[in-house]
Design a protein around this nucleic acid. Sequence first.
DNA 1: TGACATTAGTTCGAGACTCATACTTAATAG
DNA 2: CTATTAAGTATGAGTCTCGAACTAATGTCA
Lengths: 400, 400
Amino acid sequence: MRPHLRAVTDAEGLRRSTSGTEGLRRANTGAVLRALRELGPSTRSELAAHTGLAKATVGAIVADLEAARAVAEEGSRPGVRGRPGRPVALRGDRFVSLGLELNVDYVSAVVLDLAGGVVSSTSRSGGTSDDLRDLARSALDEHVGPDCTLVGTTLAVPGLVRGDNRTVAWAPNLRVEWGELADALGSLVPDQQVEVSNDANCAAYAESHHGAARGTSHALYVTGTVGIGAGIVQDGELVRGGAGFAGEVGHMTVGDSSALCGCGRRGCWEAAIGLHAMLAAVGMPELDTPLLTAESVAERARTDADVRAGLERVGRDVGLGIAVLSTVLDPQVVVMGGYFAPLGDLVLDPARRTLDERLVSTAQVRPELRTSTLGIEAAALGAAEQSFGPVLAGEIDLPA
Amino acid sequence: MRPHLRAVTDAEGLRRSTSGTEGLRRANTGAVLRALRELGPSTRSELAAHTGLAKATVGAIVADLEAARAVAEEGSRPGVRGRPGRPVALRGDRFVSLGLELNVDYVSAVVLDLAGGVVSSTSRSGGTSDDLRDLARSALDEHVGPDCTLVGTTLAVPGLVRGDNRTVAWAPNLRVEWGELADALGSLVPDQQVEVSNDANCAAYAESHHGAARGTSHALYVTGTVGIGAGIVQDGELVRGGAGFAGEVGHMTVGDSSALCGCGRRGCWEAAIGLHAMLAAVGMPELDTPLLTAESVAERARTDADVRAGLERVGRDVGLGIAVLSTVLDPQVVVMGGYFAPLGDLVLDPARRTLDERLVSTAQVRPELRTSTLGIEAAALGAAEQSFGPVLAGEIDLPA
DNA sequence: TGACATTAGTTCGAGACTCATACTTAATAG
DNA sequence: CTATTAAGTATGAGTCTCGAACTAATGTCA
């Protein structure tokens, strides 16, 4: 009865030894890769200064990376006094990762390169294993050439994913035969494990690396569709919780609303700010997708004061929940995704006011509320980024 | 106007380089120390098996530790076939750390040794810099011999501590002249930095290393006195938040209670389950300290059904808040400290029932609710443990 | 125009470390 | 008393980082 998703081959050939000198080189290589991502094209001297490594060490590491064709030299930057540096840049055509999302009524695939560039980002409606496999297959076929190595694949799903990053504990909205899915993914990337991750966590990761929370180390991502989910980034890392279930904020009790939730309880945040609650507040019908629905609401709000008042009410409840989360987690930035993105300040302004009222002390700064700009492929993008995580952290080598 | 607490000398002579081979040795030494803490006295072979290091490497590291007198050999354990192993154990008389707590009406000091043993644990009433310095001075004088090195000192305070672990942003309950305090601590441990940390964070750290959450990696600690505070441990590390203010749960909005909080707002968790709210619920007066008060309430509850009913009401609100926190953070264990400890199941049983009602899904397991057993010195103990953190993590060397 | 200053990057040797292998040591089993 | 078993130690190879010396490439200024 437990859904179990695992790619066929359990090669696990990647050495993860951290104790020897090769682990040291791996860690330092990770530092160089991170520096290149952060700084962009840089000379060896700049890398040495930024990482704290000796120039000779950086030279050796860059030479290795160049041999692996992970980086390439760019034209020099003259102008200043002294010998001009020869910047090296991460190459986008040699290593990529694949991020997938399987949701209720759509599937997404993102191909991300080592430099952090989005090679391809596609979605289509549908929610079966076959839909996912087809989309992924064509993404790989079109954008992963013969000299391009797939570093890893991560799948985002709306549900509770266990701490092993492999198996799904609970995904009530997905009607998927897990064995079938495992087969589909196994045939897609033979000889590789597919990691699984929660969709909100993936989106949070994407926002903190590529989106509205870029550059901050502590971010909170809240997504709103029919349900409400959150992803927590602390110190650049996802907070997953003891069993991998952290961030399931939809059913936390917030405010004095006694609205009945789909889960049968009362007072859930979702019952106050979920898509259906929002639509009830503005008196409008649901359209094809949450995003389309929200866009039509935003459109109507321009002329209809009643709609604005309804969004104001929703916004206050949004602020109430974010106040609770901010008090607990102290994020620097809160990114609002899902249907909140099209509504923007219509919801966020009242939320900000509520937040100001509810924050603890004069010393605490209100976190910045921003809307997501990554669109529907946010989760798949974050999933792809997660596959690069261990490489950039210096925990595993780039594949041969 | 900003309270600023900093020990005088900024030696910072500790090398933290992680890139070279000596950083490697430091990391591996940390692994051996952690293994010794976890396993207790162990032979070199056992340490090699547990850490994954080669026997020769462990031999070299143990020899170094022995030379530094951080470990000592114990009598051999005969009985099995083959050459008997010679277990080494962490010594308790060579390296210690000092944990301090400065609270509104008491100060505490804990001396902790490298093996994790509590050398000394004392408290006294009072809340001035002088009280703290005197207590700390006598703890050091009595328990830190001439051949014993103080690895570090950490101070726990009830307030918001900035992310630098040095300065206090907001501590409304403390009436302390920060310059005076810095002077007092500077004279106490010249040539050393004193780290500062939030008291609930410290207590959470203590619970996860020595107390009711020992052995788990994801714990939540909630303390109740007049105010309510929390400390969050994820993956063995404290969650501090973007500015260092995570865990300030007292003023999160929970439940439908419209009780007025001391902060001027309504619906704060503290207004529902803080000491004063609890006393109002049971109709009893406040005694000298929260703990004494709670003990007298527990005593009365044995015979008085009205008191039990009042605690039941409080317990439900406790459960409501913990449900919110568990939904967000997914801890394995929730430890209840402060006035909750003496009341135990009188409060926790209704809390558990509420928790069962409010948890998200069938897949999610209810976290275990336990009472703290560490007593009033919990925060000071956790503070002391934090000073050992970087050593056990292999980030810094033991002092010479 | 040419010596000089300046900065980038490489070479090289020293030093530190881990590791596998072979060896020594110390116990039990029969 | 010998064989067996397991713990711990020496040894040498291999990898890595680092600082210093060195080479390289450019602008500056007399």
